[in-house]
Amino acid sequence: MSKQHSQISQDQEARMARFGLSVAAGLNAQCEQLPADIGERLRFAREQAMLKAKAARLAQPELVQQAAAVPQGDSLALQGGPGGKPSRWLKLASLGPLLLLVLGLLLIQHSQWYQQILAAAEVDTALLSTQLPPAAYSDPGFREYLNEDQQPATEQPE
């Protein structure tokens, strides 16, 4: 696959070079028809642009130049072993965060489930430990009745 990728990039570079040469030839042909003063200004502007481009290339840090030299088809992720193949430990370590995420979600689900069981047990305990009139069971607001019944028991007059 790397050979195919390099063949494609070589074809692209050849096409770009041909295109650049044809554009340059067209501009050179048109340049001969321009008046002398315009041609001189264009030559001066071209020289200034070339000097600025050279200065920009020299000012570019070495790391950026080295990064540009890396082939475009390769990935930097999970390349640990010889030949660019990732090692088993590297693959296993990359699964660690996913495993922690799943375990965290399971813990949250278990905690929510446990909270619901405790709330239901609290209501059941309150229903079984107090004497309620039969109408309280059919009342839609029987939880409020239970809460009102428990509040005076917890607050003691001074």
Rank of each mutant, 00 (worst) to 15 (best):
Y137P: 00
N28R: 13
M50C: 02
L146Y: 07
L107F: 05
E13Y: 02
E158Y: 11
F142N: 06
Q7T: 13
H5L: 12
L90R: 07
L63A: 09
A17F: 08
P61L: 12
F44D: 02
Q10K: 06
N28F: 00
L99W: 11
P133H: 04
Y114M: 05
S94C: 08
L76A: 12
L92A: 15
Q131T: 08
A136Y: 01
A77M: 15
A93G: 07
L58K: 13
L127N: 01
G141E: 11
L106K: 00
R143K: 11
Q156L: 12
Q131D: 07
V64W: 03
L42Q: 02
R18V: 03
S129F: 14
Q115S: 05
V64T: 14
D74F: 14
Q116S: 04
G26K: 06
R57T: 02
G26R: 09
A56Y: 09
A77D: 15
L21Y: 02
Q12A: 05
P157S: 09
L118K: 02
S138Y: 09
V123M: 06
A121F: 03
G20R: 15
G80T: 15
L128Q: 08
P152F: 07
Q30M: 14
G81W: 01
A55P: 00
E148L: 10
A45G: 02
L101I: 09
A36G: 01
P61Y: 09
S138V: 11
A67S: 06
A121E: 14
E144I: 14
P97D: 01
L51M: 10
E122C: 06
A120R: 07
L100V: 08
L95S: 12
L146C: 06
G81K: 07
